[in-house]
């Protein structure tokens, strides 16, 4: 190989490398909502937003760990989520101007919820379940924004995440979002599906973010939508999160059983809710009965799958 050929080859490699880098840089950038979408956000209604707040389970992660009673409305953050990627710490999302999100516009809030993008343009980690919230209606986001502004301002920032390389590179999440951020419904419902089932799909797949724990994840951390709600190894510890489809090992409960469980915490065989689901069930109990019935109707309509986690002996 002559010197000039080698030189050309090096040049080509460098140019390709730079071009590839630029493409990756472009692809990994923040994909914010359009200005039109932000401008079209309606004025939120705090009373309606409270219903969204319980459906979306914000307090389960963002209240101080162990908070009970009215303290669950103080969204100071601090809860640790120990995952294979590292330890995520829920941030302060109270209405505090400095340490919370009190200084955010409705557009900032909508970009966080629907696109996982912070006001400064950086990506949030999907421990914040925006892959589900991305399916929410902008009007619900506006209502939730209005409600959260009525909650107490709590000073004090939560500690940062403790992650290992390469998960420390937030920019890479832009690529992850290209794979996993999709506002479309996961489960296609036929034209004969009733309004209740559709409402349940919205609640489960969107604000309720049930799939975040009940659907197994690929090694990338993305939900395996072909095993939707089939149950999964728990993100923390070595327990499992149950299969809530009607497949083998899954739920054999009636719609009434499911709705009653979400209301009371009692299973049909009089075991009770446990683990992380306790906080979820408490939130669900605050919803109107029609929402729990809708969730139940949707779960009965989800395609049955065998357990999404390995069997134990």
């Amino acid at each position: 190989m002559s010197k000039t050929t080698l030189g050309r080859l090096v040049l080509v490699v460098v140019v390709l490398g730079v071009a590839g880098g630029l493409v990756l840089f472009y692809l990994s950038g923040p994909n914010r909502l359009s200005q039109e979408t932000v401008a079209a956000l309606p004025e939120g209604d705090a009373a309606r937003g409270e219903r969204v707040f319980w459906a979306a389970g914000c307090t389960s992660c963002h209240a101080r760990p162990g908070a009970e009673g009215d303290a669950i409305l103080e969204l100071a953050g601090g809860l640790e989520l120990k995952t294979p990627f590292g330890t995520f710490v829920a941030p302060n999302i109270s209405s505090d101007q400095q340490d919370g999100i009190g200084g955010w516009s409705a557009g900032d809030f909508a970009n966080a919820m629907l696109r996982g993008v912070a006001p400064d343009g950086s990506h949030y980690y999907p421990a914040f379940p925006y892959a589900s919230y991305a399916r929410m209606r902008p009007a619900d986001i506006a209502d939730l924004y209005a409600f959260m502004r009525t909650l107490p301002a709590v000073p004090g920032a939560a500690p940062g995440h403790v992650l290992g390389f390469p998960f420390t590179i937030r920019r890479g999440l832009g690529l992850w979002k290209r794979l996993y951020l999709d506002p479309e419904p996961v489960i296609a419902l036929g034209p004969d599906a009733d309004d209740k089932t559709r409402a349940g799909r919205y609640l489960v797949e969107g604000p309720g973010h049930c799939g975040e724990c009940h659907t197994p994840r690929a090694f990338t951390g993305g939900s395996k939508t072909n095993e939707w709600l089939a149950g999964a190894a728990a993100a923390e510890g070595d327990g499992i999160v149950p299969n809530i489809t009607a497949g083998e090992g899954g739920l054999s409960w009636s719609a009434g059983d499911i709705a009653y469980y979400l209301e009371s915490g009692f299973t049909p065989d009089f075991d009770t809710v446990g683990g992380a689901m306790v906080a979820v069930q408490k939130n669900m109990a605050r919803l109107p009965a029609e929402d729990r019935e809708a969730i139940a109707a949707y779960l009965k309509a989800v395609p049955p799958r065998p357990n999404g986690y390995p069997a134990r002996d």
Binding site: S264, F266, T272
Partner: peptide
């Protein structure tokens, strides 16, 4: 049942882990 049930969940939240 509401009163009693709070106790069930309160304990099972932190002290029980579902294994299957």
């Amino acid at each position: 049942l509401g009163k009693i049930g709070q106790n069930c969940g309160g304990c099972h939240e932190n002290y029980r882990m579902k294994k299957n």
